[in-house]
Design a protein around this nucleic acid. Sequence first.
DNA 1: CATGAATGAGAATTCATTCAT
DNA 2: AATGAATGAATTCTCATTCAT
Lengths: 238, 238, 238, 238
Amino acid sequence: MAHDEPSITYSPAAPPDDAPKPAGRRETAAVRGRNPDLTRRQILQAAREEFCESGFDGARVDRIAERAKANKRLLYHYFGNKEALYCAVLSEAYREIRHGETALHLDAFEPEEAMDRLVRFTFRHFLDKPWFVRLLTTENLQNARFLRTLPEVRDLHSPLVGQIQKLIERGARKGTFRANVDPVQLYISIAALGYFYVSNQQTLSTIFDKDLGDFARIQEREAHAVDMVLSYLRTKPR
Amino acid sequence: MAHDEPSITYSPAAPPDDAPKPAGRRETAAVRGRNPDLTRRQILQAAREEFCESGFDGARVDRIAERAKANKRLLYHYFGNKEALYCAVLSEAYREIRHGETALHLDAFEPEEAMDRLVRFTFRHFLDKPWFVRLLTTENLQNARFLRTLPEVRDLHSPLVGQIQKLIERGARKGTFRANVDPVQLYISIAALGYFYVSNQQTLSTIFDKDLGDFARIQEREAHAVDMVLSYLRTKPR
Amino acid sequence: MAHDEPSITYSPAAPPDDAPKPAGRRETAAVRGRNPDLTRRQILQAAREEFCESGFDGARVDRIAERAKANKRLLYHYFGNKEALYCAVLSEAYREIRHGETALHLDAFEPEEAMDRLVRFTFRHFLDKPWFVRLLTTENLQNARFLRTLPEVRDLHSPLVGQIQKLIERGARKGTFRANVDPVQLYISIAALGYFYVSNQQTLSTIFDKDLGDFARIQEREAHAVDMVLSYLRTKPR
Amino acid sequence: MAHDEPSITYSPAAPPDDAPKPAGRRETAAVRGRNPDLTRRQILQAAREEFCESGFDGARVDRIAERAKANKRLLYHYFGNKEALYCAVLSEAYREIRHGETALHLDAFEPEEAMDRLVRFTFRHFLDKPWFVRLLTTENLQNARFLRTLPEVRDLHSPLVGQIQKLIERGARKGTFRANVDPVQLYISIAALGYFYVSNQQTLSTIFDKDLGDFARIQEREAHAVDMVLSYLRTKPR
DNA sequence: CATGAATGAGAATTCATTCAT
DNA sequence: AATGAATGAATTCTCATTCAT
C-alpha cells in the first residue's frame, strides 16, 4: 500500500523490489572501494528518495549525500548541481517506470479481460511506486520545467497508450466495446482513477477520516475503477 | 484555460469573485492607513499566491510580504510564522472552495441531467481554481501534515458527497442508475477525472506534446468524464 | 611610507586621513544602533580594505563582514553580492580620488613651478593612497570588467588631464615649454612614473635589495620624476 | 597589440618563440607516453597561462591540469602544491625574460641611438610579453611574498641596468648626456613608462574611451617615451 | 610513471525570524 | 499598529589536496 510517513524511503534506483540489501548499512564510497558506477547509482537512488520525500525545494543536497554515504563533493562531480541531479532522477524514473509497463501480454486475453488487467495493473503500478507519483507531482508543481529540458522527452510517453489503442480496436471489432474511443483520453482516465487515489491519499484520508491505504479499501477502489472503465467501453453512445 | 506559467497569479484570498478591487494597484499598509483587516486579507491573498506558485518549501516569506505590499514584520504579527500562515491559507482555501460547491441546485433536475451537471461543475471547478489544485497537491506532498492540525478538519469534506448520495438514490429509485453505489467512491472518481487533468496538465502536455489547456480539448475531456460517469451509473452490474 | 605587510589596512572610506577613530574598536551594528548609513559606510570601508589587501578573488566576504563588525547578511542586504560590493568600492574609490585631485590651484604659479607641484602631487597621491593603486591593479588584472559596467565610467577620468592641458598651453605661450604636447600622453607618463614605483615597489625592492619605501629614496624618486617631466617640456624638439 | 580579453593565452612556458609545436593539439600524458620532461614543461606552461590570466587566487588547479592535458595528480607529483607551482612559474618567467634582455648589442651605437633602442626595446618587451606584466602585477599584489622565497632572487635583476650604466657613462663622457645619473632610477623610469601603459591598459582604455592597444597609439607612446628619456639625459641640470 | 575517484574545509549566498524604534 | 534594520543558522556550491590502484 502506499506511503504514509516521512520516514519511508521511496524505493531504490535499480534493484527496487527484489534485491535484498545485504549488510546492515550502506557503505561509504571509501569502504565500497573505487567503484564509480556504484557510487553514481547510490547517489541517484539517494537523490530519488530525497526528492520524492521532500519535493524539489524541500530536498537537501546534504541529506542526499548522507543517504548515499557519499561525499557531497561527489554529487557535484557526477551531476553538476542540484537541478541536474534532479533531472537525472526524473529521467531515470520515467525510464524505469516505462520499462515496467511493457511486460503486459494482453494479446493473449479477450478484450474485456485484457482491459480489466490493464486497469488493475495501472492502479497497482501507482500503488507500488508511490515515489513515482510523488516525483510526477513535484514536477507538475514546477510546471514541468525540468521535464521539458530532457532530450528524450519525446520517448517518454507510456507504451500503455499503444496497448489501449489495440485493445479498443479489438473490442470494437468484436462488438463488445463501443467504437470511436480516443486512446489518449481513455489512458488519462485510467491513469487518473489510480493516480489521484495515490497522490491525494493523505488529504482524502484526513478529510474523510478513513485510511485509504487500507487493503480492503484499495481492493474496492480497484474494482470500482475496472467497473467504471468497462462500463464506459461497453456502453454504446446513444 | 487553466494556469500555465509562472506569471499567473493564483487568485486572491477573499475578494476574488465578489469584492471589487477599489483602486488600480494594491496599496501598502502605510497608504491604506491602519486597517488591520484589509492588511490581514492582503497578506493572506499574497501568501496563497506564493504558496500555490512555489509550494511550501519553495515559497519565500519575503516575496509574500512584497506581494502583499506589507511589512514583513506584519506577517509575523498576524500569523506567527510561515507554517501558521500556510495553515491559514489552507483553511481559508477549503472554506472558499466548499462555499462555491453549495450553490448547485440539483434537485430541480432529473438524476441523469443532474449528474451531468455535477460532473461538469466539478471539472470546471478545478479548471477555474488551479490554485486550489496546486495547494492540495502541495499539501499532499507534505503528507497532509498541516491539514491534520486544522481544528475544523472534520467540517472540510465536500458537500458534493451528500449531493451525490441523494442523486444516486434518486436515480436508483427511478431505475435509471444502478443500485449500491458508494458515494465516496464515486466522488473520488469524479474528482479524479477532473483533478488529474489539471494537476498533471504540465507533464501530460509535455509528454504527449499536446496543449491540454486548449479549449477544444478541455470540452472533449469534460464530455468524456460525463460519459464515463453516466455509463457507469447506467450499467447494471451483471 | 607606503604599505609593507599584509597587516596594513588600506585606509578608510570617508574620514581617511583626518577623523581620529574615537574609541578602541569599531562597534557592531547592534552597538552602533540602527544607523543604516553608518553601517553601509563601514561595510564599504571594510570591503575596500579587504579587496585592496587581497584582490578580488582573494577577498573573503566573511572577512569583510568581520572587519565591518557587521552581519554577513547585511552585505547582501545593502549590496547584493560580492561583485556588486566590489563595484561599489571601485566607484567610491574613483570618486574619492578624483575629489582629492581637484584641490590644486595651479593657476597661481608659473607653468614650471605649477608642473613641479603637479608631478609631486601625483606621486604623493599614489604614495599616500597605496590602496588605490592596489585597487586599480586588481581591476586591471580583471581586465577592467567591473569598471566597464559602472554607469558613471565616463565621468571618472582625472581632472588632472585638464589641468595639464592648461599648463602646457600656458607654458607654450610663455615659451618655456615645447609646443604640441599631447596632454593625455603626458598624463600617462606622469602617472606612470609614480604609479609604477608604488605598484611594483615590492618586487623592485626585492630584486634590487633596496627598500623603495625608504624616505630618502622616495624624495630622490620624486625629484627624478619632476626632473624628467620638466626636461621633456623644456626641450624643444629638433 | 598586447592582450585584450580572457580568450588570450599568455604564451607558452619554454618553447614559446623557438621550439616548433609538433602536432596540432597538445597531447595528454598518456599519449605523449612517459615523457616526464615534456609533461613537466607542459604543466609549467599551462600554469603560467592560468596564473597570468587569473592571478594567484583566481587561478584554478583543475584548469591548469586541464590546460596541460595532464592528470591533476601530476601537478602535485612534480611541484608539490599550488604555491610551489606558482613559484616555479615565477622563477622560470624571470629567467626567460632576462634571457631575452641580453641580446641587445648597444656598444655598436652612439649613446643616443643606443638609448633610443633600449627604451624602445623595453617598451616592446612588455608589449610582447603581457603575460610577464600580469605575472609581476600578481606578484606585487601578493607583496612579493613568493619572489622573496626564490633562492636565485639575487640574480634576477635586469641586465639592462648594467647596460644603462655603461650607456650613461659613455654619453656623459661624450658630453651628450648629463652627468650623475642614477642608473637604477633611470631604469625604473624607463620600465615605468612602458609597464604602466601595458599593466593599466584596460582601465586607461576604459576611462579615456580610447583603445590603447591600437597600433598608431602604441607607436606614439613609444616615441613619447624615447623623447622623454632622451630629453632628460640631454638636459644639463642647472 | 600515471590515473581518476574521493574528500574535508571553506566559499558565497539565502532564509526565516527578531529587535529597536 | 507598523516599520526597516539586523541576525544566526543553513544551504548550495567550490577548492586544493590525497588515496587506492
